[in-house]
Amino acid sequence: MAADPVVEYWAEIMKRTPISPELMAQWKRVMDHGIEAWSRALSEVMATEEFAQLLGTSIEQWLAAQASITGNRAQPPAHATQLPALAAQLNRIEERIAQIEERIASNAESAAGAASAQTARRGRRRRAA
């Protein structure tokens, strides 16, 4: 496979610098050693009684905090709590309107009935006269 001319060009330039291509490998070695050292140090700390105790306490505190947050969330906000009351009020108003409508209708019926009875009575009186 032919080499990439751009890579070739940069390789040529880099060759003239004091930087060695081994630099990347050195960086990797340093990183690996550093991570390994940190890992060992942290493992030692985490294996102690004190850390286990701290972890246990932290979990308990976190759970308590979580419970208080979810506890607050469980309480619906004020405007949300009023919604069912508002809906109930609307229902009651609707029922009231329906009752009024029924009463008007029945009043109208009875008024109409009374009016027709009066007309009939007048008629009977006229015939009797």
Binding site: M46, A52, Q53, L55, L63, A64, A67
Partner: peptide, 22 residues
């Protein structure tokens, strides 16, 4: 059992409380 064994020691880890809390 290593680190998990240490952390789950009943002195520091109350499994019932943790499960309930979660």
């Amino acid at each position: 059992s290593g680190l998990f064994g240490r952390w789950l020691d009943p002195k520091y880890f109350n499994v019932d409380r943790v499960v309930e809390g979660l």
